[in-house]
């Protein structure tokens, strides 16, 4: 967000700039099946980079906040909750049981994601 907006003072130019820069790094789909037991989920522009992620049991997910504002990672049923993550702060949680885990940002609740553990 910070880098993308740095050179674009006019909001009218934003959609163009954003669509151009976004086209480059998005080689991953929004939902993905992980092969390794450690995965990173970037939090960027008020969204979780992978909104649905399938992982093996005992995998560790690390959320990294790339926004200029803090986010709080919280499971919808209260199983886990991070402290407030400032820019570049990380939070990890290891999923030891199979199941479906919904989570959200507890201060920006429109931000939602899901982890499927198999």
């Amino acid at each position: 967000m910070r880098r993308r907006l740095l050179n674009s003072g006019l909001s009218i130019a934003l959609p163009l700039v954003l669509s151009m820069t976004l086209a480059l790094p998005v080689t991953r789909a929004k939902s993905e099946e992980a092969k390794s037991s450690a995965m990173e989920v970037r939090v960027d522009n008020f969204t979780f980079a992978l909104d649905t992620l399938t992982i093996p049991v005992n995998s560790t997910i690390t959320w990294v906040n790339k926004d200029d504002v803090p986010h709080v990672i919280a499971s919808s049923d209260g199983l886990f909750k991070s402290k407030a993550l400032d820019t570049d702060d990380r939070y990890s949680y290891t999923f030891s049981k199979a199941g479906s885990y919904s989570y959200y940002c507890s201060i920006h609740p429109k931000m939602v994601g899901k982890i499927l553990v198999r």
């Binding site: 909001s11 934003l14 959609p15 976004l22 522009n45 008020f46 969204t47």
Partner: peptide, 19 residues
Amino acid sequence: QPAPGAAEGPGPMKVPSEQ
């Protein structure tokens, strides 16, 4: 912050410092 829908997200908006 950007006007509703004018950017991809609602985060802090950088404008030229003199503005």
